[in-house]
Design a protein around this nucleic acid. Structure first.
Length: 417
DNA sequence: ACCATCTCGAATGCCATTGA
DNA sequence: TCAATGGCATTCGAGATGGT
């Protein structure tokens, strides 16, 4: 440990030129290296706590945003509630710091942070420091100094000894506002995405309750929807059976539980692999099949459905889910069933099937008894196209977010040293 | 009194086993 | 063979604990 620290210092001293790769042109000269403790106060003392305040624990912060604001009374406060925050403080997650659940605090009012956080207060540009704590080299130094395996954490002394490179204040400010603007843009994109998701949810509800109906290409009404039992228009089949631990890892692809749970469409880049002998009698799945999760620990999550919308040869299904195959894709368009089996009305029906106390299960026979209203094939296609278009917008948003996050990560690498 | 670290139950996702 | 449920490994955070 001591040796690692020493080595680190030597390397930095040998590097000499403390200058980032990417820099605003109006600035020159070397940056200086300081211990975090030299340029900031960590866990500064505050007076006694007020009678009530908002307590920030690790759960309250998601993605650099404070999402939960719950006011609590001092008498009910956790014993770890200690210091009052003030604007410009930086909350740095010391417990399992790789989660990077950090917060730039710019709120007015009475807030107190859990001691899982280090409260960093600086006279330098606080937003610069906030950006710097997300710099990979900084994270590496933190993780290196963490102790404990089941409970990795850095203490505030070790944290204050970490050296960081800082330019003069105007350059700090310039970098900080540039990176903060990028963060703001990201936040906006994320907001846009969640609005789209909300819209999709609302519009799906209207479509499946038939409050909102489409017209055909000639402007005429589509035929009435027909009530059908799932058993009447298709059948179920099981996933893999008789497999042991040793059979997994290599071999043929199979659809994993989480691929079904996570998305209404199977993500074909995430298959697991299982060894299947030539003479084994296992069910193969095919394009258009719908998969349901059988078992869950909360009743609301049971029977989550996903549809295979790609052609994949020789593909199997995990044993904690079952498949449903419509007797014909002319009756049930898979692009439509993707939405049908995830809409709220259908979910309400399926949740009723959950049985059990500590764990909930669903029977296939019960599922087949469920009746659903199904529109004609052309209307199914219309609905599917409409909803897919929204999904595409959401996907586009996700990709933008992903790209921007990568871009920013790259920038951090180049703009700091 | 303060704070770093431990412990433990809850949550999660996976797979195995049992009885009909 | 199938439906149903039990069990395991892992991760998490909050309160508890115990050292300074």
């Amino acid at each position: 440990m001591q040796g690692a620290k020493y080595l680190n210092t030597v390397l930095i001293m040998e590097k000499k030129t403390n200058v980032p790769k990417l820099r605003f042109p109006e600035f020159e000269g070397e940056w200086v290296e300081k211990k975090l403790g030299e340029i900031a106060e960590i866990n500064p003392k505050s007076g006694s706590l007020p009678n009530s305040f908002i307590y920030i624990d690790l759960e309250s912060v998601v993605d650099g945003q404070l999402l939960k604001e719950e006011r609590i009374e001092l008498v009910n406060a956790p014993s770890r509630a200690q210091r009052l925050l003030s604007e410009g403080d930086i909350l740095f997650q010391m417990v399992r710091p790789y989660q990077k659940n950090n917060l730039y605090f710019d709120y007015n009012g009475e807030y107190v942070a859990s001691t899982g956080y280090a409260q960093i207060r600086t006279n330098n540009n606080p937003q610069y420091i906030y950006q710097y704590i997300h710099f990979q080299q900084f994270t590496d130094k933190v993780i290196e100094r963490c102790t404990g395996t089941s409970y990795p954490a850095i203490n505030s002394t070790d944290l204050s000894n970490i050296r960081i490179a800082i330019p003069i204040l105007p350059e700090q400010t310039k970098i900080a506002s540039f990176l903060t603007a990028a963060d703001d843009k990201l936040t906006q994109l994320k907001k846009k995405k969640s609005l789209l998701e909300e819209y999709k949810k609302g519009v799906m509800q209207k479509i499946f309750s038939q409050e909102l109906r489409f017209k055909d290409d000639n402007g005429e009404d589509f035929p009435e929807w027909e009530e059908k039992s799932l058993g009447g228009i298709g059948e179920t089949f099981n996933g893999l059976s008789g497999k042991t631990k040793e059979d997994f890892g290599l071999g043929k692809p199979y659809i994993q539980y989480k691929q079904i749970f996570d998305d209404s469409k199977i993500d074909i880049s995430r298959f697991g692999f299982v060894d299947i002998g030539d003479n084994e009698n296992q069910n193969r799945v095919q394009f258009g099949d719908v998969f349901f999760t059988i078992s869950s620990e909360t009743p609301n999550e049971i029977g989550t459905a996903s549809v295979l919308l790609d052609k994949v040869d020789d593909l199997y299904l995990n044993s904690f889910c079952f498949g449903y195959r419509a007797s014909s894709l002319e009756i049930l368009n898979p692009y439509f069933s993707r939405y049908l089996f995830r809409n709220e009305l259908f979910r309400n029906e399926i949740v009723k099937l959950a049985q059990g106390s500590t764990r909930y299960n669903m029977s296939k026979t019960q599922l087949l008894r469920i009746c659903v209203s199904i529109p004609s094939l052309p209307e199914q296609t219309k609905i599917a196209n409409f909803l897919s278009a929204i999904d595409e917008k959401i996907n586009h948003c996700s990709k933008q977010i992903e790209r921007m996050e990568e871009w920013k990560k790259g920038l951090l690498q180049q703009m700091f040293c």
